[in-house]
């Protein structure tokens, strides 16, 4: 397997992203000198592996489909936003709105993710080894968010059907988000997600608490009929 190396000190992000679309002969890519540039490896649509050596800017690996993107550094706002499938792994921290609106795939953050992690997530599995910031999983619709550290304020505000697992403390829960029983099926689900993230056996599923929707906000309630 040959690796195609793209040095962003010499090529533009547009050239890189274009090549990732047109050059299907290379399944392994290495990106040098990202220097915080935006939209690196966005819109991938093939099962290639893209390794990025350094910190990236906004929207890295956005809309990802099938590809595996590894960032050796920190990521800016909107990492893996609207990911459809594949895998995105950041060895450092992720900024705000990591995994926003993502439909599928796995997003793994070795460090911390800041505010609004998993906002409006629609089926993605997010695993954060550190902690997450405030308003995470806001209006989360489906998927799982697993946090080995702590969660900031208003976790899961206005949440629909996503499942949230937090090992540490939760500063506060948002509207209509409640703690739920951690039954065996949830432990099995969580174990599966941890395994996919390479964390099987590294942490005990019994240490996590589960949070989800109380379902009082998004179901029509007959008592409110007069309001319509």
């Amino acid at each position: 397997m040959t690796t195609r190396i793209v040095d962003l000190a010499a090529s533009s992000v547009r050239e890189l992203n274009q090549a990732l679309h047109t050059d299907k002969g290379h399944m392994h890519w290495q990106v040098l000198n990202p220097a915080g540039r935006h939209s690196i490896a966005a819109g991938l649509d093939a099962p290639a592996t893209v390794e990025i050596d350094g910190h990236v800017g906004y929207y890295c690996a956005g809309m990802n489909k099938h590809a595996s993107v590894i960032v050796r550094g920190n990521a800016g706002v909107g990492l893996a936003e609207n990911m459809m499938s594949g895998r995105v792994h950041v060895t450092g921290d992720a900024s705000q709105a990591a995994g926003a609106t993502a439909h599928g795939g796995l997003l793994l953050v070795d460090g911390n993710a800041s505010a609004r992690c998993g906002i409006s997530m629609k089926g993605v599995d997010i695993v954060v080894k550190g902690s997450i910031g405030h308003m995470s999983a806001f209006m989360a619709q489906a998927g799982t968010l697993t946090v080995l550290g702590d969660a900031g304020e208003s976790l899961g505000d206005s949440i629909y059907e996503a499942k949230l697992f937090v090992r540490g403390s939760v500063a506060s829960l948002g509207a209509d988000c409640v703690e739920k029983d951690m039954r065996d099926e949830h432990k099995a689900l969580l174990f599966g997600k941890l395994t996919a993230a390479g964390l099987a056996g590294a942490v005990d599923v019994g240490d996590f608490r589960r949070y989800g929707s109380a379902r009082t906000l998004y179901h029509f309630h007959v008592d409110n009929v007069g309001a319509y």
């Binding site: 220097a35 540039r37 910190h55 920190n74 800016g76 705000q96």
Partner: peptide, 27 residues
């Protein structure tokens, strides 16, 4: 408290730097 606006910092033993985006610190 809502952190509407972006911020990233870098610290070494020689300096502390602030940028709206990491790009500003990359050099």
């Amino acid at each position: 408290p809502i952190a509407c606006k972006p911020a990233v910092m870098a610290e070494t033993e020689h300096y502390v730097a602030f940028g709206s985006e990491y790009r500003a610190l990359a050099g």
